[in-house]
């Protein structure tokens, strides 16, 4: 009914609630009209995931409705236009701000071939055979090694996130960090 997208490296904490308000207003709805709130749980930027989940949990708790978690990588895969992924496998690649990237692969019907995992772009580049469409903000790192693979045309889309949740493709509404907090015990080298 309504969707918004803003690409930002930072600033989500100030942007997200006005965006929620704008989307509801555009759809002619109030929070009380919603049956659930869907949110991406990762993999992705830790701070970004937390901002999304904090907003979703605050909305849902107050409205008395559930929060539904959706994998960022599944949302990326499902955002690829059907025409583009016809007969192709899909590889969703998310930047982790480290050498490794977060990857989940899907068959041509978008059935996951495994859970999201951390791997190097080189590992990602040889983890699938045949024709592959690559989606996500780490796609360039993979495509640089596999010029024969194709970049997905569509960005991540909150409409896809809501659609996946509505279709029952949900996960616990907890962050999927895939990496422990970076910290070293005193005296441990």
């Amino acid at each position: 009914m309504s969707r918004r997208l803003a690409v930002m490296a930072r600033g989500q904490a100030e942007a997200v609630m006005p965006m929620v308000a704008a989307v509801l207003a555009e759809a002619g709805l109030t929070i009380g009209d919603l049956s659930a709130v869907a949110v991406t749980v990762g993999p992705g930027t830790f701070t970004g995931i937390r901002i999304g989940l904090a907003a979703a949990k605050g909305l849902a708790l107050t409205a008395g409705i559930p929060v539904l978690g959706v994998l960022t990588t599944e949302a990326l895969a499902h955002a690829v236009p059907p025409g583009q992924r016809h007969g192709c496998r899909v590889l969703a690649a998310v930047d982790s701000k480290r050498a490794e990237i977060w990857v989940q692969t899907f068959d041509s019907d978008l059935a996951p071939l495994g859970p999201p995992a951390a791997m190097t772009p080189a590992q990602a580049a040889c983890c699938l055979d045949g024709r592959v469409v690559v989606a996500g903000d780490a796609a360039a790192a993979v495509l640089a090694l596999r010029p024969d693979w194709v970049r997905a045309d569509a960005p991540l889309d909150a409409g896809v996130v809501a659609g996946l949740a509505a279709a029952g493709n949900t996960h616990p509404p907890q962050p999927l960090y895939l990496r422990d907090a970076d910290v070293t015990l005193p005296g441990v080298k």
Binding site: A13, M17, I31, R50, A54, A55, L61
Partner: peptide, 18 residues
Amino acid sequence: IGGVMVGATFGKAVAFAA
């Protein structure tokens, strides 16, 4: 700031929904 963002965003969401 990571913690502040959690509480601030959660608080905004509660305020908006209420």
